[in-house]
Design a protein around this nucleic acid. Structure first.
Length: 932
RNA sequence: GGGCGCGUAGCUCAGCGGUAGAGCACUGCCUUCACACGGCAGGGGUCACAGGUUCAAACCCUGUCGCGCCCACCA
C-alpha cells in the first residue's frame, strides 16, 4: 500500500488499525511464500482443536511462532507458516454430544452415524471460523491459502496409507488385551489420557474359605466389586505364612467358584494381607500374573458392560448394578456371611479419564496397536545425534524417558468422529466352508461341528485396504470367488458373515493423524513441490505438555515415512497461569479470552507481553498490569513518531546516513548494537531478551536520550546543516526501530511505517538491518556516555538540594581536561536544556553545588541560600560510596593470587577502576573542603 | 519410588564466576512546546539455609529445608 503519509493522530487506537492492516496484508499476499530463490523458513502450527475457541495459551504459542515467522521474513527467508486445525476426536465428539443434550436434541445413537457426523462437521466449521478469526486478531501471519484440517479427504488418504503400510510392515496389529476403558465415552483411551488422582479410599480385607475347610485366606483389595471376577489368589513364594497353601484352592464367596492359590513374586508380603486376588480382566498387574501362570487355569472373566455396569458374567444379584453399587453390595454380602475381616482407610491413586472425568476401567477388548517401540528407535537416535534439538534442552530427558519406556500404542477408539479404520472383517474361510456345507445339507446343524463353526466365525478374517474396492478385491481373492459375490454388511455391528464385509466401525486416535501433520499438510503421499520445499520444517513451537502426545509421534512417523526428522528444533514454552500462579481451567473459571485482552490493550501489547514474559523453562504468570505497561510502551512509540513527524523526520533511506555530530554517530552505533543483541536473542530463542532489548532501546535510549539530546539541534535558529543531518539520522533510526519491533508489534509499526513516509513496500516485507553494515563510533559513544553521566549527576544533585527544576544555573568547571572542555562546548545546548546549566563567568556568594564527573569538578553557584548541611551530607554520601568501591577494588587487587590467577583484562580493569575511584574520592574530598 | 524445575527488591521475573538488575508497585518533585498510558529524581535485596571448590560464588559442587510439575503396577 503506497499511501501518502498523513498526520499521525494524537490518540493511538490499536483496534482500528489492526483490522485494517491485517486485511491488507492477507489480501496483498504477504503471508504467502513468495521468494522462490530464497531459503525457505517453515513452521507448522500446532493445529488447534476445533472444540470451541482459543485460550491464552494458544495466544502465547502463536505469538512466538509469528515472531519467528515475521523475523525470518524480514531477514529475507521465504517464510511459510502452515496453518490448520485438528478434528480432536474425543474432545469434539464430547462437546457436540453435550450440546445435543443441552438443546434437548436426539442423542448420537438415535441420530445415527451419518447425521451425527454431519452435525459435528457443522460444529467444527463454526469452531474453525472462531479460531481462525482469533488468530487473525492476534496478527498471526499464517499461509491461509493452504489451510488444512486433519479430517480433510487429503488427510484421510495420508492416514489410510500410513495405516495400510504399518499393517503390511507388521508394525500395526489387532490384539485382545487390557485397555484403559472410559465408560463415559465407552471407548478405549491411551495411557496418556489417564490421569491419576489421590483418593481417600478404603482397603477391605475379606476372608476366602480354603477348599479343604482348614480355615480362611485373608485377601485385601481396594476394589471389592472385582471379586466377582477373581480367578486366583496370589501370594509371595517366600512368605512363610502362606507357603503351605500354594497349589491349594480356595472358594470364592458370592460366586462359589474354586480358584487356585498361586505364588508370584509380584506380591509384597508386607503390604495389605500379603495375599492378592487376581482379576485378570480388570487389573493390569493381574493380567500380567495371569500370563505368567498359563498352567494354573486362571479364568479371565470380563465382569462389565461397556458402560461399566455389571454384566451377565456376574451372579444374578449383581447384574445391571453400577460399579459403585456392586462394590457396596459385595462388601455388605461379605459382611452378612461373616467374611468381612476389616476395613481400613487407605489413600491411593485412582485412574480417571482426563476428558470425561470418570473412573477408568481396565477392560479386555480387541484394539489396534502400533508397535511404538520399533518406531521409537529412530526417533530416539535423531535427538541423541542432534538432528533435532529441544529448546530448552532439558526436555530431551523427558522425551527420552518416555520413548525408552514406550508401550504399544492403542490407536483405535470406539467413537464416530475421526478417521474410520480401513479394516474389514469377514468370516474365515473355514467357517465359510462349514456354513456352505450346512446350507447344502438343507440347513441342518447336526452335520457340522457347531463349536468349531462359531469359534471360526469369531476369529473373523481381517482385510486391510486403502478403500472399499481394494477390500472387495482382497476378499474375492481370499474366498477365491468373483468380486461380484462380495458385499458389504448393512450393519457394521453385525457378526461377520461369509462373503460379507463388515467395516471396522472404530476410528483412529486423533494423534494418529496429528502425527502426520508435518507432511500430510504438504500434500503427502503425493511428492509435491510444497513437500519437497517445506519438509523438514525449521522449528516446532509448542507446550511441553504435548511432547509425548504429539512431538514424539511426529518424530516417529516423520522418520518412518519421510526418512527425515520433521523439524530441527523443538521449542517448548511454559504454561500460561493467572496472576496468582493458578493453572487456568474452565472449571476454575480463571480462563482468559485473548480477544478480551486484545480489545482492552491491543494485539501488539498482548503479543509484546507474551514475548517479554517467555523466558525459557518457566511458566508465565500473566498479569494485566504487565500488558498495560506494554500498551504504554506502544503509546510511547506512537508519540515519538508523532514528534518526529512534526519535526519533518521520517521516510529515509535504509542505509545509515553519514553523520558528523557525536549524538548522531552515537545513536547509529546504538542501533547496530541493538540489532546485534536482537539477532543473538533470536538465535538463542530468548524471546524475553528480544523484547527487553527493544523496550530499553526504544524507551530509554531513543526517546529519553536521543530525542531529548537532539531537540536543540532541531530548534529554530539551529545550524541548518546539523538539523538536516539530525533529521536524516533520526528518521533512519526510527525506521530501524519499526523494522526491529515489527515481529513483536506488527500493527503499530506497519501503521507508523506508512505514516512516516512514502514507502515502496509494506513493512512486513521490509529488510531487517544488517548490523555489520552499520558504523559504530567508539569515540562518539564515549562522548555521549560522558554527557549522559554529566546530565544525570547534575540532575541528581539539583533534586537532592531542592533546586527548583526550572532554575537555570551557571557553572564553573575545575580540573577539566581539554577533551572535556571540547565536549562541553560541543554539547552546550543539550547541557543547557537537560541539566539546566550554562557556563558562568564567576562564582557568586551564597554557596555552591559541586558535582564531580570524571576528572572535572563542576561548581554551580547558587544565587540564593544553599542548605550547606544538605550539600555536605550529599557530598559525604557520594564520597562514602566512592571510597567503598575504591577499597573493595584495592582489597581485590591486594588479595593473594588475584594478580597471577585472574584474567589479565580483569586485573587491568580493576586497576583502572581503582585509579578512577580513588581520584574521584579525592575530588569529592576537595569539594567538601571547599564548603567550609 | 524415580526424574525435572524453582526459591534474587513489596509483586512478577532476568542475571548463572569478577563492584546486585528490569518491569510493576512505592516516595518526592514537575501541567517543560511528542507523550500524565508522561518526565525527572529517589527509597528498597545478608541473591532460601549450611558446608565445600576458587584469588574471587547469587552464579560451580554437596547436603538441608520449602514450593511446583512429570513419570511409575504396590493389590
Amino acid at each position: 500500500m503506497t499511501t501518502e503519509p498523513t498526520l499521525i493522530d494524537k490518540t493511538f487506537d490499536p483496534n482500528e488499525l489492526e483490522a485494517r492492516w491485517y486485511a491488507h496484508w492477507e489480501q496483498s499476499g504477504a503471508f504467502r511464500p513468495s521468494r522462490p530463490d530464497a531459503q525457505p523458513y517453515t513452521i507448522i502450527i500446532p493445529p488447534p482443536n476445533v472444540t470451541g475457541s482459543l485460550h491464552i495459551g494458544h495466544a502465547l504459542d502463536n505469538t512466538l511462532q509469528d515472531l519467528l515467522i515475521r523475523y525470518h521474513r524480514l531477514k529475507g527467508r521465504d517464510a511459510r507458516w502452515v496453518v490448520g486445525t485438528d478434528h480432536a476426536g474425543i474432545a469434539t465428539q464430547m462437546v457436540v454430544e453435550r450440546r445435543l443434550a443441552e438443546q434437548g436434541q436426539p442423542d448420537r445413537k438415535t441420530m445415527g452415524r451419518a447425521r451425527f457426523l454431519e452435525t459435528t462437521f457443522d460444529w467444527a466449521k463454526q469452531s474453525k471460523n472462531t479460531i481462525t478469526g482469533q488468530l487473525r486478531r492476534l496478527g498471526a501471519s499464517c499461509d491461509w491459502a493452504n489451510e488444512a484440517f486433519t479430517l480433510d479427504p487429503g488427510f484421510n488418504t495420508a492416514v489410510t496409507k500410513v495405516f495400510v503400510q504399518l499393517y503390511k510392515e507388521g508394525l500395526l496389529t489387532r490384539n485382545k488385551r487390557l485397555v484403559n476403558w472410559d465408560p463415559e465415552f465407552q471407548s478405549a483411551i491411551s495411557d496418556l489420557e489417564v490421569e491419576y488422582r489421590e483418593i481417600d479410599g478404603h482397603m477391605w480385607h475379606f476372608r476366602y474359605p480354603l477348599e479343604d475347610g482348614s480355615g480362611y485366606l485373608a485377601v485385601a483389595t481396594t476394589r471389592p466389586e472385582t471379586i466377582l471376577g477373581d480367578g486366583a489368589v496370589a501370594v509371595n513364594p517366600d512368605d512363610p505364612r502362606y507357603t503351605h497353601l500354594i497349589g491349594k484352592r480356595c472358594r470364592l464367596p458370592l460366586v462359589d467358584r474354586l480358584i487356585p492359590i498361586i505364588a508370584d513374586s509380584y506380591v509384597e508380603a508386607d503390604f495389605g494381607s500379603g495375599a492378592v486376588k487376581i482379576t485378570a480382566a480388570h487389573d493390569f498387574n493381574d493380567f500380567e500374573v495371569y500370563k505368567r501362570h498359563p498352567d494354573a487355569g486362571i479364568p479371565v472373566i470380563n465382569l462389565m458392560n461397556p458402560d461399566a455396569t455389571m454384566a451377565v458374567t456376574c451372579p444374578d444379584a449383581y447384574r445391571g448394578l453400577t460399579r459403585e453399587e456392586a462394590r457396596k453390595k459385595v462388601v455388605a454380602d461379605f459382611d452378612a456371611l461373616g467374611l468381612l475381616d476389616k476395613i481400613e482407610p487407605h489413600r491411593h491413586q485412582v485412574p480417571y479419564g482426563d476428558r470425561s472425568g470418570v473412573v477408568i476401567e481396565p477392560y479386555l477388548t480387541d484394539q489396534w496397536y502400533v508397535d511404538a517401540h520399533t518406531l521409537a528407535q529412530p526417533a530416539i537416535k535423531a535427538v541423541r545425534s542432534g538432528q533435532t534439538k529441544f529448546v530448552p534442552a532439558t526436555w530431551e530427558k523427558t522425551y527420552f524417558n518416555w520413548l525408552d519406556n514406550i508401550q504399544p500404542w492403542c490407536v483405535s477408539r470406539q467413537l464416530w468422529w475421526g478417521h474410520q479404520i480401513p479394516a474389514w472383517y469377514c468370516a474365515t474361510k473355514e467357517a465359510t466352508r462349514l456354513e456352505v456345507a450346512r446350507l447344502a445339507a438343507g440347513g441342518a446343524s447336526n452335520d457340522v461341528d457347531l463349536d468349531f463353526f462359531w469359534s471360526a466365525m469369531n476369529q473373523s478374517h481381517v482385510i486391510i485396504a486403502a478403500d472399499e474396492a481394494g477390500a472387495i478385491s482382497q476378499a474375492a481373492e481370499y474366498y477365491e470367488v468373483t468380486e461380484s459375490e462380495i458385499s458389504f454388511a448393512p450393519d457394521p455391528y453385525d457378526t461377520p458373515k461369509p462373503y460379507m464385509l463388515d467395516r471396522d466401525p472404530d476410528v483412529l486416535d486423533t494423534w494418529f493423524s496429528s502425527a502426520l501433520w508435518p507432511f500430510a499438510t504438504l500434500g503427502w503421499p503425493e511428492e509435491t513441490p510444497d513437500l519437497a520445499r517445506h519438509y523438514p520444517g525449521d522449528v516446532l513451537v509448542t507446550g511441553f505438555d504435548i511432547i509425548f502426545f504429539w512431538v514424539a509421534r511426529m518424530m516417529m512417523q516423520g522418520l518412518h515415512f519421510k526418512h527425515e526428522v520433521p523439524f530441527h528444533t523443538v521449542y517448548c514454552h511454559g504454561l500460561v497461569r493467572d496472576a496468582r500462579g493458578q493453572k487456568m481451567s474452565k472449571s476454575k473459571g480463571n480462563t482468559v479470552d485473548p480477544l478480551t485482552l486484545i480489545d482492552r490493550f491491543g494485539a501488539d501489547a498482548l503479543r509484546f507481553t507474551l514475548c517479554a514474559m517467555e523466558s525459557q523453562g518457566r511458566d508465565i504468570k500473566l498479569d494485566d498490569k504487565r500488558i498495560e505497561g506494554y500498551r504504554n510502551f506502544a503509546t510511547k512509540l506512537w508519540n515519538a513518531a508523532r514528534f518526529a513527524q512534526s519535526n519533518g523526520i521520517g521516510g529515509q533511506a535504509m542505509a545509515p546516513p553519514v553523520a558528523t555530530h557525536a549524538v548522531n554517530r552515537w545513536i547509529i552505533g546504538e542501533v547496530a548494537a541493538t540489532v546485534t543483541a536482537l539477532d543473538a536473542a533470536m538465535v538463542a530463542y530468548r524471546f524475553d531478551g528480544f523484547a527487553d532489548t527493544l523496550y530499553h532501546f526504544v524507551w530509554s535510549r531513543f526517546c529519553d536520550w536521543y530525542l531529548e539530546l537532539t531537540k536543540p539541534l532541531l530548534a529554530e535558529g539551529a545550524d541548518a546543516g546539523l538539523a538536516a543531518e539530525t533529521r536524516a539520522v533520526a528518521g533512519w533510526a526510527l525506521d530501524q526501530i519499526l523494522v526491529m519491533l515489527h515481529p513483536a508489534m506488527p500493527f503499530l509499526t506497519e501503521e507508523l511505517w506508512h505514516k512516516l513516509g512514502r514507502r515502496p513496500h509494506d513493512l512486513i516485507v521490509a529488510r531487517w538491518p544488517d548490523a555489520a553494515g552499520i558504523p559504530r563510533d567508539a569515540a562518539a559513544a564515549a562522548e555521549i556516555d560522558w554527557l549522559i553521566g554529566l546530565i544525570s549527576d547534575v540532575r541528581s544533585a539539583r533534586t537532592e538540594l531542592n533546586v527548583p527544576p526550572s532554575a537555570k544555573l551557571g557553572y564553573l568547571v575545575d580540573g577539566a581536561a581539554a577533551e572535556t572542555l571540547a565536549r562541553l562546548a560541543a554539547n552546550a545546548p543539550a547541557i543547557e536544556r537537560l541539566a539546566r546549566m550554562l557556563p558562568a563567568d564567576a562564582a557568586s556568594d551564597g554557596g555552591r553545588l559541586q558535582v564531580v564527573v570524571g576528572e572535572a569538578t563542576f561548581s554551580l553557584p547558587l544565587a540564593g541560600v544553599i542548605d550547606l548541611a544538605a550539600e555536605r551530607a550529599r557530598l559525604e554520601k557520594a564520597r562514602a560510596v566512592c571510597e567503598k568501591e575504591r577499597d573493595s577494588l584495592a582489597a581485590r587487587l591486594n588479595s593473594p593470587g588475584f594478580a597471577e590467577k585472574a584474567k589479565p583484562e580483569a586485573v587491568e580493569k580493576a586497576r583502572a577502576d581503582l585509579a578512577a575511584r580513588a581520584a574521584e574520592a579525592e575530588r569529592l574530598g576537595l569539594a567538601l573542603a571547599r564548603l567550609d
